Simulated assay, not measured.
Amino acid sequence: MTYVIVHALAPIFVIMLLGFMAGKTKMVDNKNVSLLNIFVMDFALPAALFSATVQTPWVGIVKQSPLILILVLAMWVTYAAIYFLAVGVFKKSPQDAAVLTLTVALPNYAALGLPILGSVLGEGPSTSLSVAVSIACGSVLLTPLCLLILEREKARQSGENTRSTMAMLPVLMWRSVKKPIVWGPLLGVILSAIGIHMPELLLSSIKPLGLSATAAALFLTGVILSARKLKINSMVIISSITKLLIQPAIAFVIVLALGLHGEVAITGVLMIALSAGFFGVVFGNRFGVQSPDAEAVLLISSVLCILSLPLFISLTSGL
C-alpha cells in the first residue's frame, strides 16, 4: 500500500519540482505568473471540471448522495473551524484565512482520488464516478465560499463595499458564479440533471485542455512556491494536523453516525483523508493574495499523507 501511495504522489512532486526549478532559475518569472494563472483558472481547470460533471450521469450522482453528504459535511466543518481559528485566534486577514482554509478543507481529489481509491476498491466505473462526484462537490459546494470572501475583501479595498456583507451577498455571489472555475462544473451538473448530452465532438475538442489542467496547476503551484520561503508556525502545524488526521476523523464519525457501510463509507473517509489540494494557493494568487501558511500546509500534507493514509485505509477496512 505504501508503494501505491508513493506512486500516486510521485507525479505531484515531480511536476511541482519542475515548476519550482523553472521559477528559481528564472526560466519562468515567478513574480509575475498572471498569464499562467489565467490559463489554469479560466480555461484548463474549468474545462476539466465541466467534462467530469457533464459526463457524470444524474442517476449516478443521486445514488452517490450519502457520499456527497459525508464529503460536504467534513469539508464545511473543517472550513468553518480553520477560518474562524485563523481570523479569531491567529488574527489572519480574511483573504489569507480564506486561501488557507480552502487549502486545508479541500482534498486533492483531482490528482490523488483515482489512484488511491482504485488501489483500495479496484478501478472501474463506480470508482471513477465517485471521484467525479467528489471533484464536483469541492468545485460547486466549497470553492465558492472562498471566492465570496476574496470578492468581499476586494470590494472593501476598492471602496465599493460600504454596506454589510449580507447586503452585498447577491453581488458577491454573482461575481463568484461568473468565474469559469465555478460556472464550469455547475453548468455540467445542471446539464446532467436535465438529461442534456454534450456532442462528442465538443467533449473531444476540450479534452486536451482538461487533461492539461492538473499538470498545469501543479506546475503553477511550483512556480509560486519558488518565490517563497517555507515557514513553519503554530497555524501551519494545527492546519496540517487538521488536514491529515482531524478532517478524516470527522468523516469517519459521520460515517458511523449515519450507519453507512461498504464502498460508500470507505470512499467518503478516504477521499477526505487525501492531502491538501492546490486550489487554495492558485485561487489566492489570482486575487493577489499570498498565504505562506497555505503553501506550507500544501507541502507538509503532501509529504506526510504517506503516513496518515495507511492509517485510515486500515480503519475503513472493517466498514
Rank of each mutant, 00 (worst) to 15 (best):
A8T: 11
M198Q: 08
I135Q: 03
A265H: 14
L220N: 06
G124S: 11
G113A: 05
L319W: 03
A52M: 08
L9G: 02
Y79D: 03
L73N: 04
I190A: 13
G195Q: 07
D293C: 08
L187G: 06
Q247Y: 00
N233F: 01
K24W: 03
C137M: 10
V87T: 15
V282P: 01
A8L: 13
I246Y: 03
S205N: 12
C305Y: 03
D293N: 14
T56V: 06
K243Q: 06
T78K: 08
S239R: 05
Q157K: 14
E123F: 12
L169G: 00
A213S: 13
I232Y: 00
L211Y: 07
L311I: 15
A155P: 10
G222L: 06
L117P: 05
S314A: 15
G60M: 05
S239Q: 02
L211E: 15
L203Y: 05
I82P: 03
T267M: 10
G19A: 07
S240A: 12
L299V: 14
L274Q: 01
A80Y: 14
L209H: 06
L203Q: 07
S301I: 00
L106C: 07
K231I: 14
K207L: 08
L141T: 06
K243T: 06
V303Y: 03
W58T: 03
I238H: 05
A257V: 11
L245G: 13
P144C: 14
I237A: 11
T143H: 07
S314T: 14
A265K: 10
P248R: 01
L211N: 15
V171Q: 11
I190P: 01
L100H: 06
V99R: 13
G268V: 12
A10T: 15
S134D: 04
W174G: 08
M21F: 11
V28I: 15
L299H: 01
Q55E: 09
T2N: 12
G222M: 05
P66E: 12
I181Q: 11
V223E: 04
F84I: 15
S240F: 02
M75C: 03
G259C: 11
G262Y: 02
F283S: 10
V131A: 03
A273T: 04
P208N: 02
A10V: 13
S192K: 05
I82Q: 12
S164F: 00
V223C: 12
T56S: 06
P199N: 08
G210C: 09
L304D: 05
Q290P: 02
V255F: 09
P115H: 13
S308I: 13
K24D: 03
S317F: 09
V54C: 08
V99L: 04
L274Y: 01
L71R: 02
I68D: 06
L148T: 08
A136D: 04
I313W: 09
M173G: 07
V282S: 07
V289K: 15
L209D: 02
A105C: 07
M1L: 03
V297M: 04
A216S: 14
I149M: 15
G318K: 12
S139W: 00
G188D: 07
R152D: 14
Q247S: 06
G268E: 10
L274V: 02
N30Q: 09
I12E: 07
S126H: 14
N161S: 09
V140Y: 00
D29E: 13
M166P: 00
L225M: 15
K179R: 12
G184W: 03
A294N: 11
I70Y: 10
L311T: 07
A111H: 12
